[in-house]
């Protein structure tokens, strides 16, 4: 289970990572955020964001045009 679910469906660049940043700021290190997006670019964007910001992408799943990321706060 994620500690926080952030819904960024329907939003385009740069909103998914802006929302991800806002979400993860409310967590403690080690907690997990689930981020849901529909923007195709977000697959690469979210991973680049996590790497730069020092968080870990635990998993990425695609289902029916939705991307679900599980991200652990670093």
């Amino acid at each position: 289970m994620a500690d926080l679910v952030v819904d960024a469906r329907g939003l385009s660049c740069p909103m998914p990572i802006v929302k991800a940043k806002k979400g993860i700021d409310s967590l403690q290190p080690g907690q997990v955020m689930e981020l849901i997006t529909t923007d195709k670019g977000s697959v690469n964007d979210v991973q680049a964001w996590a790497k730069q910001a020092g968080h870990e992408v635990l998993s990425v799943e695609e289902r029916n045009g939705e991307y679900r990321f599980r991200i652990q706060k670093g």
Binding site: C13, P14, I17, V18, A20, K21, A48, W49, Q52, A53, G54
Partner: peptide
């Protein structure tokens, strides 16, 4: 502004 927002989100 898209780059500025992205950069800010990246810390």
């Amino acid at each position: 502004f898209i780059i500025a927002n992205g950069a800010a989100a990246m810390g």
